[in-house]
Amino acid sequence: MNRRRPNPLVSRLVEVRSRSDHSTIEEELRSLILSGGAPPGTTIPPGEVADAYRVSPIPVREALKTLVGEGLVVHQRNSGYRVSQLSTEELKEIYFVRGVLEQAALAQSVERVTDADIAAARGCHEQLLTATKWGDGKSFHDISRQFHAHLTDPCGMPRLLSMFESTWNLTEPFQVMRSVSASTQTLLNADHEAMLVAFADRDTAAVLQVARVHHSRLEAAILETADRREIGPD
């Protein structure tokens, strides 16, 4: 008798589960989606997840309900649960909202940022240059978020940062920065350098100007990656 092949997402969850006994189903599902380990459109079978964790379907469905509320998962009566899949236009809209929130955070951070914060961001910038040099798209993607966090977190506004994080999470499953060209990465790195200079000078106007230019490049990056793969139905 042929055995049914396990769902790829469930197989990855089992692998992650074997490394930690402390994370919850919700945390591990969220982490897998945000890391790109479960690409947009991936099906999430609650029964198989429950079997893998040796629990009833109830905690799995509760976890999925939370992730639906965060926008990371969608539920349709006839097709079950899937990792959210957005059209190019929807993704551009989320990036727009994310950019507005980031500019608000950056404006508040300029006067509060410490030399240590700037040094940490510069450390990320150096790693991004290395990632571009060696064509390491995954590192470029992951470290980009760390760079921006070092410059937005000092704003000291938890509600704003929570909204900013939520919009960033919505874009994470698409792993856009992993797919952009080296030339685009070079332009983004130049923006980062200009932002660091503006922060060091405590120049709010310059910081926001660079942030606007940077955001326009991110929108172009979305279109660039959309040309290489299908992001979702329009």
Score class of each variant (00 low, 15 high):
residue 123 G to L: 14
residue 123 G to C: 07
residue 158 P to T: 11
residue 150 H to F: 13
residue 96 F to T: 08
residue 61 R to M: 08
residue 125 H to G: 02
residue 30 R to I: 03
residue 141 H to T: 03
residue 49 V to H: 04
residue 62 E to Y: 15
residue 91 L to D: 02
residue 63 A to R: 04
residue 68 V to Y: 03
residue 86 L to N: 09
residue 149 A to Q: 09
residue 132 T to W: 06
residue 159 R to D: 15
residue 96 F to S: 12
residue 34 L to K: 10
residue 60 V to E: 00
residue 141 H to S: 04
residue 120 A to M: 08
residue 49 V to M: 05
residue 68 V to M: 11
residue 79 S to K: 06
residue 135 G to D: 01
residue 93 E to N: 10
residue 51 D to A: 15
residue 58 I to K: 05
residue 55 V to Y: 06
residue 151 L to A: 02
residue 44 I to F: 01
residue 97 V to T: 10
residue 95 Y to M: 09
residue 108 Q to H: 12
residue 137 G to W: 08
residue 85 Q to K: 15
residue 161 L to A: 03
residue 44 I to R: 12
residue 115 D to C: 05
residue 154 P to Q: 04
residue 118 I to Q: 09
residue 134 W to M: 02
residue 34 L to Y: 06
residue 161 L to V: 09
residue 73 V to C: 01
residue 124 C to D: 05
residue 15 E to G: 06
residue 18 S to T: 05
residue 92 K to R: 12
residue 140 F to N: 04
residue 71 G to L: 13
residue 95 Y to A: 14
residue 56 S to Q: 13
residue 30 R to Y: 00
residue 105 A to H: 09
residue 126 E to Y: 03
residue 46 P to I: 05
residue 70 E to C: 00
residue 73 V to G: 04
residue 43 T to V: 08
residue 33 I to W: 00
residue 37 G to T: 01
residue 112 R to W: 08
residue 80 G to N: 11
residue 112 R to G: 09
residue 25 I to S: 02
residue 112 R to Y: 08
residue 158 P to I: 14
residue 60 V to M: 04
residue 160 L to G: 04
residue 140 F to S: 05
residue 20 S to P: 08
residue 53 Y to R: 12
residue 62 E to F: 10
residue 117 D to F: 07
residue 156 G to W: 09
residue 91 L to E: 06
residue 63 A to I: 07
residue 127 Q to F: 03
residue 70 E to A: 02
residue 50 A to Y: 04
residue 139 S to R: 15
residue 40 P to Y: 03
residue 89 E to G: 14
residue 99 G to W: 13
residue 44 I to P: 09
residue 53 Y to W: 14
residue 34 L to D: 04
residue 20 S to A: 13
residue 140 F to P: 08
residue 17 R to Q: 12
residue 134 W to S: 04
residue 154 P to I: 08
residue 21 D to G: 15
residue 134 W to G: 05
residue 112 R to L: 13
residue 108 Q to E: 15
residue 52 A to T: 11
residue 140 F to L: 08
residue 83 V to W: 02
residue 58 I to L: 06
residue 114 T to F: 07
residue 144 S to R: 09
residue 18 S to I: 02
residue 163 M to I: 05
residue 108 Q to R: 15
residue 56 S to R: 14
